[in-house]
Design a protein around this nucleic acid. Structure first.
Lengths: 192, 192, 192, 192
DNA sequence: TATGAATGAGATTTCATTCAT
DNA sequence: AATGAATGAAATCTCATTCAT
């Protein structure tokens, strides 16, 4: 019995993620999700109350995954804001490349109604990025009149790139392109 | 016949735009669109042959509007790439502020199936931006390893800003913030 | 075009009545009702919001029919309470024989939740019977310590008789048997 | 082992009785019954093989209880038919007050399909009442053209009274009201 | 014997679409 | 061209029942 056997809920969310990634919400039948997860329709309903809840759970898990990655990587990278920004970009880009469909939905802004749980998990991520930018401003390494806006840019960068990607896009090329744009766009050249 | 009386198809697309702006595709009933446009359900079908077609028509109209604005404003602004970029940003931001829901959808990447007509209209816009960037590179005013990617950034910037906007966001503040980021991020400082 | 062609709602309630008469609520599929009424499933939903609503509407119509019959017959039968009781019994028995299943349900006491509309229509009938009994008491033709209770008896009589009927039960034999029991049971022998 | 601890099957039927009393068959989930009886869902299936069987068992138990009461009380009350009728009314009314929901269902006439076992148990009760009435007719104490019908009345009386009871209804007031109606309605005045 | 997670048949309900007017 | 009553395919969701433990 391999230790990494996904439990039922994760197994179902994996299936949901794959399907919602390639089709609109209403084009995915709950039965398809169940079938792909190799469980019965009814089993899905033992974990969530409706198809909407499955959808939300899948997105929440996406944000949680990025947050978990940052929990792991940020503490060890020192206090230099540009190092941190690089770590953040790496985490976001890695997730976006691994789960492009989920990442697109995470930034779709079309969840009605926004549930509080999801709102919270998303805020965790954006607050983190914003805090990093503000720290950079305070340290004189960043000049930015609106870090809140820049936070949104950063996430939207990645989504836009994934949406209509140049044919030779790789994780690294995207990372370097974005990092260069940011460093020149809001960097002060200090910090060394 | 006053010029500002929208004709029936536009009236219907206006209604569709308002509704799709705040709810997912499957949450908007064709009946809702008809009701809000003050026409019968059947009338919608005299202009388009399905709900999907109405959705696509609404988005196409969005891209067409931005393109029309650029047709009008770009020719008169000279050949300086930064002037042109400013005009482009202004056009996109203006549209996004006037029709936030439609703009979000125009960049939603969830059109299934992608119809060729729409693909064409969208290309018209992105090609235009890309051409402008490349001209800047050639003129030595822009340093950019991947103008295609930067084109996507530019549009995604706006979408991201509109999605979770800071409370004090205005057309002008967004324009200046983005323009500054771009000019420092990919500008060479030459060209004046 | 015959004037008595039932309109769609009545046509549907007729079908519902026939089916609910012979099977439990959950054994009747909405599709069966629609099929028997020769309409599409969706048509039923243009008139009522749910299967429950159809069920309630059918019962309300039952009470309304008995009330209508009394509206027609009671005014012309004079003020003698025993004549009136006979008219009432006749109306109730006639309805019960014509629509045994519906009548059983009308007295099933198992509607959850009781909707106010139905409660009202039922009260119209029971109040009428009770008023008749009280008038008889006041006129010295009836001796009854609890006309409210007797009203319930009267309706339950009919239901009980229909439920497990002796093989030779007819409208007339039931009417006479009940009338005799009542006249001797609560009559004073006065009034002639 | 205290004698009043209900065994598991009775415990389950008690739970079923409480639930079926206030809701329609299809509104009660087997899971609800199990939960209220503090047993697992599967346990119910070790005693009966379907939800229908539980329902029937509950009703059979109701008739059996009334029959048992009559087995106890009738033998000792002599041969006078009016004493016996009083005993019968008392038994039925007592049961109806203790288990109003079950009694309503016992007389609901909506058991599908009628199972032979239940039919038998019910006949035991009605035959007993009918026999008592016929004995009274033979003894000249009762004048009744159709004792079978009267038997149904008697049970329906109680049901009707319980269904929409006057606010001040008690076991005794109901007993006296019914007894008076019957005695005057079908009594001959002889027998004392 | 007792359990409750898992199941899927089958129910209700919705809503895009049609078409007679 | 304009309508909206009628439709039924197809979706979501429920819950009686099973069965491995």
């Amino acid at each position: 019995m391999p230790a990494h056997t996904p439990n039922k809920p994760d197994q179902i969310l994996d299936a949901a993620a794959e399907l919602f990634a390639s089709r609109q919400f209403h084009e995915v039948r709950l039965e398809d999700i169940a079938a792909r997860a190799h469980v019965g329709k009814g089993t899905v309903y033992t974990y969530w109350k409706s198809k909407d809840e499955v959808y939300l759970a899948m997105i929440r898990r996406g944000f949680a995954a990025v947050n978990a990655r940052l929990d792991r990587d940020l503490p060890g990278c020192g206090t230099d804001c540009w190092s941190q920004i690089r770590i953040i970009l790496q985490a976001v880009i890695d997730f976006a490349f691994s789960h492009p469909g989920v990442f697109r939905i995470m930034r779709s802004g079309s969840l009605t109604p926004e549930d509080p749980d999801l709102q919270h998990t998303r805020r965790l991520l954006t607050d983190r990025i914003e805090a990093c930018l503000r720290a950079g401003v305070n340290a004189g390494q960043i000049r930015d009149t609106d870090p809140r806006l820049t936070t949104q840019y950063l996430l939207s960068f990645v989504r836009g790139a994934m949406l209509y990607p140049p044919h030779d896009l790789t994780r690294d090329s995207l990372l370097e392109h974005m990092f260069a744009l940011l460093q020149r766009g809001i960097g002060t050249g200090d910090g060394r």
